[in-house]
Amino acid sequence: MTLTERRTGTTARVPVPLLLPAVLGLIFLLLPLVGLLARTPWSTLPQRLAEPEVVAALRLSLLTSTLATLLCLAFGVPLAWLLARVEFPGRRVVRALITVPLVLPPVVGGIALLLALGRRGLVGSWLDSTFGITLPFTTAGVVVAEAFVALPFLVIAVEGALRGADTRYEEAASTLGATRWTAFTHVTLPLVAPGIAAGAVLCWARALGEFGATITFAGNFPGITQTMPLAVYQTMESGDLEGAVVLSLILLAVSVTILAALRDRWLTSS
């Protein structure tokens, strides 16, 4: 027996106590998806997809999750930069606080949002009386709920990317006349772009699937606040299993497609 043969032999001999749970875990992850595909009413699928409620929910979902991601980028990237680059007292506390929405049950997040931004909430009452802005039970409210839940994903991903980036490039930029702001826009941002893209994808996926905070804070009004996950839930509740399967399938297809596309373009290449 040659050495190479022996080596291939050892690779194949994975210990059973590791192999068995690994395969079971994989099956556990994939089986529900197989179930979804198996129960899909493929023959009636086209007309189901064209139903106005489905189209409206899908549009709303794509719109709100994209807006929520943009909102998260606008606030999350500077927040991540602050955490990664500036020494300030209580930085560790702030970092810990940011992860709270990550572990908080989304329903609780929704209630918290109501108490803060609701019509009688801490800031909400002021928004209402001063600007006439009410967030709860509006499309804007959906964006706020999704952004609240998704922001930590972005901040953590971008902060990690910033910490991994070599700060000496920023120093080099400053010796060439770049202020801290231009160094950020011309050097730091391009360097951490792959990290920001990865964070945005995570953030977007989280916003797309958001349910608990949305239904609590924004309610479930078709065309206004009923996103895809809410539509899946309602269709299921009304006894239309087939409809729920169709909606779920769309959600699955959209997420997988976009994740795969972005993965090829940004996440792996650099």
Binding site: D166, R168, Y169, E171, A172, A173, S174, T175, L176, G177, A178, T179, V187, P190, L191
Partner: peptide
Amino acid sequence: PPEDRPIGVVFQDYLLF
């Protein structure tokens, strides 16, 4: 601050962007 000094630096590992 460094950006306002009339000084050019060639760094050890160049740090080309």
